[in-house]
């Protein structure tokens, strides 16, 4: 899996992710793109980070940016990673590109004490309007046409929270954004992007 979005678009969420990371943490970034987030976390938090990306160009870019990168295919899962070997396992704007949604979320919470996930909200009002007008949504965070999209899962904030409840995944914190600004009023309708900090029931008691 490679990062389908330019990380420039995602950069505003990096700052929010960085606030959730403590000093000297071990961080695994799945679909790490050019390594910009890990580079930021290394600089700001002295984090020891590893990125995972399948795209050869991203691998070279990460190495150029001084970031550890592993060219693994996430569809094969995280089975080689040991339990609790990271403080945070992050997947920024990539969950919608992974076919095995529940297994990857479970794996992230096995390998990491906590998981951080961000994704484009398909329930965003302009997307609903596009569907109502008879076309699939195309926007800044969903820049693809239906026939060339790397996205394989289409879900809203409400869908995601329902899945978490069903799978016993604890939502520790949630932030929603549109145009880089916080959305608090009906995020499922008004947010373009959602950012979650997730935990396991056994660690959050």
């Amino acid at each position: 899996m490679s990062t389908p979005h330019s990380r420039m678009d995602g950069r505003f969420d990096f700052l929010h992710i960085a606030r959730w990371i403590r000093e000297n943490e071990r961080v695994l970034d799945l679909g790490c793109g050019d390594g910009a987030l890990l580079s930021l976390l290394k600089r700001e938090k002295n984090a020891r980070g590893y990125g995972v990306d399948l795209d050869a160009k991203n691998v070279a870019a990460c190495i150029r940016n001084g970031v550890n990168v592993l060219q693994f295919n996430l569809e094969r899962g995280l089975s080689g990673f040991e339990d609790n070997s990271f403080d945070h396992v992050i997947m920024s704007l990539s969950l919608q590109t992974v076919r095995h949604t529940v297994p990857i979320l479970k794996e992230m919470l096995r390998v990491g004490h906590e998981a951080v996930v961000s994704f484009p909200n398909f329930g965003f009002a302009p997307h609903r309007a596009a569907i109502a007008a008879g076309r699939m949504p195309v926007s800044r965070h969903l820049p693809y046409q239906w026939f060339n999209s790397p996205n394989v899962r289409f879900f809203t904030i409400a869908d995601f929270e329902a899945l978490c409840a069903e799978e016993n995944i604890v939502i520790l914190e949630c932030l929603s954004f549109a145009d880089g600004a916080f959305i608090t009023d009906d995020p499922n309708l008004n947010a373009e992007v959602a950012l979650y900090r997730l935990g396991r029931p056994d660690l959050t008691a």
Partner: peptide, 20 residues
């Protein structure tokens, strides 16, 4: 990959490229 995971276990810096 086995080598990479063993290096990760030991907290070492490692980058891994699987070239097509």
């Amino acid at each position: 990959r086995e080598l990479v995971y063993a290096l990760l276990h030991n907290g070492l810096n490692v980058s891994y490229a699987e070239i097509d």
